[in-house]
Amino acid sequence: MPDPVRVRDWNAASLTIAFGIATVLAAIVLIAPSIVILITSFTDSASLKFPPSGYSLRWYRALADADQMQTAALNSLIVAIWTTALSVVLGTGAAVAVSRSRGWKARLLDGLFMSPLLLPALAFGFAALIFIYRIGLRPNLPLLVLGHVIVCVPFVIRTTLAALAQLDPALADASLSLGATHAETFRRITLPLIGRGIGAGGFLAFMASFDNVPVSLFLADERTEVLPIHLWQQIETNLDVRTAAASGVIIVATLILMALAERFAGLTSQMR
């Protein structure tokens, strides 16, 4: 008689092994480029050769004098902060409205708000540029922010809708029956309980705006040049090693932000 506790199941074991290998491969593909660029950024030579022949911090020191790059980084930061703020306000409102209504109207709106995630951002950027010229405007910072909001707000809507779906509708009813107004109920019950969802969406929106290329490509002018586009141009024209150092700064800053977001907003649990 076979041992009832431990049945050897080669079928299940082979599946586990296959998934394990796929996971490791995916991790390597995802992480390796970041590690390569991080190592390269510490090179002591003027080329982007990997592995570097020697190590130094010279390119990080050179960042201190890279005025154009600093301006671009500042632009990116300003755009990302404005984009995040607007996305959080608009996205939360949209999510609350969608979650309260039922039927085809809500589904239509939901799909409409989500469409920027699915449509090629390049097409949207180009269309937005033509539209802006048609109505007699020229690309500027507020329009760039607006463009970013359109492609970033779906993140906030998604995570906020997920948080709202977890929210027991009886809580709002309880608050009302205790004499609170709808506004009080939203401020004291709904908002605190979906705050983490909104925060997670805000974080994603910030990151999506900060490294957005397709929309910025069309809507940024020479005064509002953003970091990803500036870095691309530097690589393309003179293989500037400072771009590697800038990438290193971005990678480390992102890791710190992610750790903070995970610690305070439970980022990954909000995205499930």
Binding site: D168, D173, L176, S177
Partner: peptide
């Protein structure tokens, strides 16, 4: 009178205590 001015108290099936 809307729910918040009707003076009706409710104990919900799952109690609906504010978790935060």
């Amino acid at each position: 009178l809307p729910a918040n001015r009707r003076g009706v108290g409710i104990v919900f099936q799952n109690y609906a205590l504010f978790p935060h």
